[in-house]
């Protein structure tokens, strides 16, 4: 039950940040592939850097342990990414 509340809470902020970054719009997503609007990359990379620093810092302090890291299988990840890009540029989601 507590887990569900946390998930809902996290989801709300996740959706809120996506909306405020404009990633809920078709044009934002597609324009990053046309190099006319780099908001998606700026948003993703900022989130990555902030989270990397926070997570590795907290782990260094012994406050958290990492969950299972997404598995690496080079061909699957790459091919998945390649197909994913087609869908992303088509739908803009």
């Amino acid at each position: 039950m507590a887990g569900s509340v946390i998930a809902l809470f996290l989801g709300v902020f996740f959706g809120f940040s996506l909306n405020k970054a404009g990633l809920t719009k078709y044009s934002k997503i597609v324009n990053v592939f046309r190099f006319t609007d780099m908001a998606v990359l700026q948003f993703m990379m900022t989130a990555l850097v902030v989270a990397m620093i926070g997570l590795y810092g907290l782990r260094g302090l012994g406050l958290i342990t990492f969950p299972a890291v997404p598995a690496t299988y080079i061909v699957g990840n790459l091919i998945g990414g390649l197909i994913f890009g087609v869908g992303m540029a088509l739908t803009g989601f």
Partner: peptide, 26 residues
Amino acid sequence: TWSPYVAGILLGLVGILAVWLSNSLL
């Protein structure tokens, strides 16, 4: 529309909280 950097910081914090509070990933 916020600056993507500000929204990105918010998402980064959410990502940290996800691991901290529920040991899961978004």
